[in-house]
């Protein structure tokens, strides 16, 4: 009896989708071939998970870590992304995709470091400073990719991508001195403040030593899965990895003044800022007959 059940199950598993009209079953999707579906349009939306890193190198005296500046070594964050895309089948399993989209890259980091605090003009002690920064940049994303269908549902894309900066990069910094201490930042009005907040908006053309890059080139590798909703309409979750050139036009030479009372202004170089992103989007794709 068991054998009989297994034998019955075997063809069921093999040909579960066939019917009286189609020996290979109802098409769950339309094949993306040039002949049958020359063009598809997609609208995608989702999130971009961003990660940055750079090295911070002191060219002279090394401060005893940690310093409030350490947070700038890395950062991460989530921001929105959206795109309109077109897919043109060029051969069975192969297609060209072009997309035009908006991607916001936002990252931040927080931590604590030690700064010098002066009492009664000549007594210097350490004080803990909580620091946090956020960078937000908006890009027009232009991409081209070669699509290859691994299976009828699952495909890979790989191709170049270019990000054009829209507007200026917004950067905020916030520093808060340990509230149990008597230290603070002296404001323009001469008062003492425990919290210091700085906001800057810098564009590629602003007269700063290292402005943000106006554009970034790179590559994008994606994997997508097609979920048919109805004939001619599909839901398409896609996971893409982006590796692009630095969002900054160069390295930053600056000074670390958090220990200026004891060590002086320490020359420091911020070098090799990189920004990686992983995009998780869900698209709705329409077949154009």
């Amino acid at each position: 009896m068991r054998w009989r059940c297994m034998l019955l199950l075997f063809p069921l598993l093999l040909y579960a989708q066939e019917d009286v009209l189609r020996p290979r079953g109802a098409p769950v999707f339309e094949p993306w071939t040039e002949a049958r579906t020359p063009i598809r349009l997609g609208l995608e939306g989702g999130i971009s998970w961003n990660s940055t890193s750079q090295s911070i190198t002191y060219t002279g005296v090394q401060p005893t870590p940690p310093t409030p500046m350490d947070i700038f070594k890395s950062g991460s964050g989530i921001s929105p992304a959206a795109a309109a895309a077109v897919d043109i089948g060029i051969a069975p399993k192969l297609g060209l995709q072009f997309k035009l989209g908006y991607e916001q890259k936002k990252w931040s980091n927080s931590g604590s470091g030690i700064a010098d605090c002066v009492y009664f003009l000549d007594i210097v002690s350490d004080v803990s400073v909580q620091s946090r920064y956020t960078v937000q940049a908006n890009y027009l994303a232009i991409g081209a990719a070669l699509r290859y269908d691994l299976t009828p549902q699952l495909w890979l894309t790989v191709g170049p991508v270019y990000h054009r900066l829209l507007g200026k990069v917004r950067q905020t910094e916030r520093y808060e001195v340990d509230p149990t201490s008597d230290c603070g930042f002296i404001g323009p009005d001469g008062d003492l403040y425990r919290v210091l907040e700085i906001e800057a908006k810098i564009g590629p053309d602003d007269p700063v030593p290292t402005p943000p890059s106006s554009g970034r080139f790179g590559a994008e590798l994606g994997i997508g899965y097609r979920i048919p909703l109805s004939p001619g309409l599909e839901l398409l979750p896609r996971l893409s990895g982006q590796l692009l050139s630095s969002p900054r036009s160069g390295d930053v030479n600056t000074g670390d003044g958090w220990r200026s009372l004891t060590l002086g202004l320490l020359p420091v170089q911020w070098k090799g800022l990189s920004l990686y992103s992983v995009l998780l989007t869900v698209g709705v794709w329409f077949t154009i007959q």
Partner: peptide, 15 residues
């Protein structure tokens, strides 16, 4: 005469 896939009467294989 009609076609059937997995008819309860059984058959020679697929449809």
């Amino acid at each position: 005469v009609f076609a059937a896939f997995q008819h309860e009467l059984g058959g020679q294989g697929r449809t």
